[in-house]
Nucleic acid binder design. Structure first.
Lengths: 123, 123
DNA sequence: TAAATAATATCAATAAACGATATTGAGAGA
DNA sequence: TCTCTCAATATCGTTTATTGATATTATTTA
């Protein structure tokens, strides 16, 4: 049984796996995919991008499938799929915990910076 | 208009805000709340705990509401609520992006470490 | 006053993130 | 073949975060 996949991925790492799940890509194309599919919210500079790619290949989450000149194309491995699914599950768990915590809220205890006007009690 | 709240919170930070939303707490009690409500998945050691509390107070996400001897009790501020909501939104956005990315998957491109048996095509 | 306890604070070592910059390989044009 | 340019990748160096281990401090108990 392979070593358990390391868990809290960074947002950049999650989106990289997400990109590679659509098919083999080189680094640049993956970064472009991410920018498009995150509404421009997430932009990976070269340092972040290639650092993570190297890490992912070393950990077996991605696998190099071709080299044409300088251009290296990677594809997600089964371990990469697992790591991706595990991360999505983690996010879902966080949201579920948040939802259940919401039920036991005691809003009267909220401490506001300026306790003065308190017109509308915020949502 | 106050400076925009910094965005990707760590998991520990998110759960801390979650804990404080239930009412004022001292650090230790917050850490216990988190261990209980995460099914033991998340345990904050003292370094993590107090480092984040200090950061949150400095940033105005928490506010000290009482000191009894060594024991300091904090409560979440309106900015803390905002940061919490923003983080939940971010998680939801990630999951939504993942879901929409799923639709454009090309599964035939997946690169398996050992391309041999390929019995059940994993989910 | 001293020992024990509970809570908080700090150290130090490791790792992550990322802007800026450098390197490399392929092709184009002379 | 030489060099120019471009696209893609690689690395440097700084800053920031994370965390186990340990130290400090206020209160309580004996």
């Amino acid at each position: 049984m392979p070593k358990r996949t390391m868990e809290p991925l960074t947002e950049s790492m999650l989106y990289l796996l997400m990109a590679y799940r659509t098919g083999p890509l080189c680094g640049i194309d993956a970064a472009e995919w991410i920018a498009r599919h995150s509404g421009g919210r997430i932009r990976l500079g070269p340092a972040t991008l290639y650092t993570i790619l190297a890490k992912f290949e070393a950990e077996g989450l991605l696998r190099e499938v071709s080299v044409e000149g300088r251009k290296r194309t990677y594809a997600v491995t089964e371990r990469g799929e697992e790591a991706y699914r595990a991360e999505l599950e983690r996010l879902e768990t966080c949201l579920a915990d948040a939802a259940s915590a919401h039920l036991e809220r005691r809003p009267e205890d909220a401490a506001d910076e300026d306790p003065a006007p308190a017109a509308l009690p915020a949502l």
